[in-house]
Amino acid sequence: MPSAGNSGGLITIWNGNLFNGREISKDYFQITVELTSKLDNTVYFITNVYGPNSMEGKTEFSNWLLNVNIQPMQLLLIVGDFNYIRGPENRNRGGGDHNDMMHFNNIIINLDLVEIPLKGRQFTWSNMQDTPLLEKLDWIFTSADWTSKFPNTLATPMAKLSSDHVPINIQIDNMIPKCHIFRFEEFWLDFEGFIDTISNYWNSCTFHADSAKNLVARFKSIRKGLKIWSKQFSQLNKTIENCCFYVKLLDGIEDQRDLFQHEKNFRKLFIRHTNKLLEAKRKYWRIRANIRWAQLGDENTKFFHAIATHVFRSNYITFLINSDKLIVNDHEQKAAILWNSFKSRIGTAGTSQMNFNIDHLSRSINQEELEQPFCMKEVDDIISSMPNDKSP
């Protein structure tokens, strides 16, 4: 779409060696293309928008956005200058139309869109004045299925050289770097062997005379034991898939003949175990999504995945600057910088000395007066000393 003077204009470009592309819809404020991967035939929908400034254009644009039809399992990415802000924090000074903010947020909620947060910049547009007005007008949204398939989709700013908008680089990946810290999982309590593991490793650690060291050693021993024991749950999805395969296999056999009793019992065990694993998976994502209102039996798993991934993106640290003023992007190097900073702040343990005399601080007090009953004079004195507007 060509520009109108210095504003507007849209272009969507793709690599023909990797994708087959075709235009789905086009208007003066949006272009939607369908990209089909030549590698695995996965279909992606990319919508590039440029929100109008005029009242009539905004109304037409918001009506189109509200009526976007997102199909189940559709991988959709909507990017561009929406010319809307979501809240007062998206401006560096007061102002903004609160009705527009509410309308824009309602559209996002109705479409179940997931925002990709921009890491490293608070605002994306400037009026380029000496005392500039800064706003966040550029947004990146995805469908819930996109978030499930590509949980590590990140948006980072680039250098603003000529435009009044900040260029944004979107990185798409389906791998999230995992930390090495120990996490206790709630669903472990439902599986056999958990209590025995706790008991065995609690009692098997070396005894220390210092009670604090003894307690820490026992907790470390339990952590080691649970790490070893929990490896059987490291591939929940694969285990659930295998169980479902055998249930379907027995169902297929039942279509051909009656099942023997031991085959029926075998299928019941598989179904019971699969339901237990599905409940463990639900608890796993419920904790990470931090959705406290999730009820037992809620099957909206994709939404759980989307919320959990959104929390990860918001907390993700894109880069750190080390002591040599160099930008560090590697996950392990960022972890080392944080560890060294924490260690330098805490310092090292040392011996403490008591520089006061406890015997000097203590003194004998005559407690006989405390045992005597209240007299009427004390009560009268207290009441007479109270302000006139206070009730005794």
Score class of each variant (00 low, 15 high):
192 E>A: 05
190 D>Y: 05
155 A>T: 05
364 S>K: 12
280 A>T: 01
30 Q>S: 15
137 L>H: 00
359 D>C: 02
363 R>Q: 07
22 R>K: 03
376 M>D: 11
159 A>E: 15
261 Q>K: 07
107 I>C: 04
361 L>C: 15
193 G>S: 07
378 E>L: 00
264 K>I: 11
192 E>Y: 06
101 M>E: 06
249 L>W: 06
362 S>Q: 09
264 K>T: 04
313 R>Y: 08
172 I>C: 04
65 L>V: 12
145 D>E: 13
377 K>R: 13
87 G>I: 08
311 V>D: 06
144 A>L: 10
249 L>Y: 07
94 G>N: 11
390 K>W: 02
355 N>V: 10
33 V>A: 14
346 I>E: 05
22 R>F: 04
214 N>A: 08
343 K>I: 13
372 Q>R: 09
329 N>Q: 15
286 R>E: 00
326 L>I: 14
308 A>I: 08
241 E>A: 08
280 A>F: 04
381 D>W: 08
313 R>K: 12
111 L>F: 02
100 D>E: 13
261 Q>N: 15
252 G>V: 04
392 P>F: 15
382 I>N: 05
63 N>E: 12
317 I>L: 07
290 N>M: 08
4 A>I: 03
322 N>E: 03
353 Q>N: 10
322 N>C: 01
261 Q>S: 14
140 I>L: 03
7 S>Y: 07
331 H>Q: 13
157 P>F: 01
17 N>D: 13
317 I>S: 08
103 H>T: 15
58 K>I: 06
259 L>Y: 00
353 Q>R: 10
343 K>Y: 06
250 L>Y: 09
40 D>W: 02
154 L>V: 11
5 G>M: 05
